[in-house]
């Protein structure tokens, strides 16, 4: 696999955790991983954009029109970063709404598949509103062509935060089964 992913959201939503989870699962499955995170100012509620490359140690930086996959934890931030996605790519966005019609038309023309999921609401129902990020990871293995299984993801998340393993497992299930 050699997959370029852009992850975005707002500081505090756990974008970095989502990045680490996917990276960790890929590493545990024996793939090389390179990513560029953002730390510092951005955690104070600002826009956050991370670059992740699974399956290669080459440059983690994704160009405009170069991403296979965009994972957006916030709809506005997703919209802002849509231009990263290449034609034929995929978008998974945490949102209760679809993108504006005009944007959707363009996405269709470019054969970019878009999946919206109200992960925050699902996470809240599950008892932890901040687990939206892990739900999105579940969606990612279900929908995209990352060579990772749901089980691998669950094993990795348990290694990353043993205490929250049960909750995170459930979050992955929910994300995985939504589509």
């Amino acid at each position: 696999m050699d997959i370029k992913i852009i992850l975005c959201g707002i500081g505090g939503q756990g974008v970095v955790f989502l990045n680490r989870l996917l990276a960790r699962a890929a590493m545990d499955a024996g793939f090389p991983v390179m990513s560029l995170e953002s730390h510092g100012m951005s955690r104070r509620g600002g826009s956050v954009v991370l670059h992740l490359r699974l399956g290669s140690h080459e440059s983690p930086l994704v160009s405009q029109g170069g991403a296979d996959l965009l994972l957006a934890l916030d709809a506005q931030e997703g919209l802002r970063n849509l231009s990263f996605v290449k034609s034929g790519g995929m978008v998974i966005v945490n949102s209760k709404d679809e993108f504006p019609a005009e944007v959707s038309t363009e996405l269709k023309r470019l054969k970019i598949k878009t999946h919206s999921i109200n992960a925050t609401e699902l996470a809240r129902k599950m008892g932890k509103a901040t687990a939206a990020n892990v739900i999105l990871a579940g969606c990612t293995v279900a929908l995209s062509n990352v060579s990772l299984t749901k089980e691998a993801l669950q094993e990795s998340v348990a290694l990353m935060s043993p205490k929250a393993a049960k909750l995170n497992n459930k979050a992955i299930e929910i994300g995985y089964n939504t589509f």
Binding site: I10, G11, M41, S42, R44, G45, G46, S47, S63, Q64, G65, G66, Q76, E77, L79, R80, L82, S83, F84, S87, F99, P100, E102, V103, T105, E106, L107, R109, L110
Partner: peptide, 26 residues
């Protein structure tokens, strides 16, 4: 096609985009 976004998509995004979220005090 390389290293640039599709111009039609960029134009559509621009119409609906909110200003970037600046960092704020917690």
């Amino acid at each position: 096609k390389l290293f640039s976004a599709d111009s039609g998509l960029v134009a559509a995004i621009a119409k609906h985009q909110s200003p970037p979220r600046p960092p704020r005090l917690c």
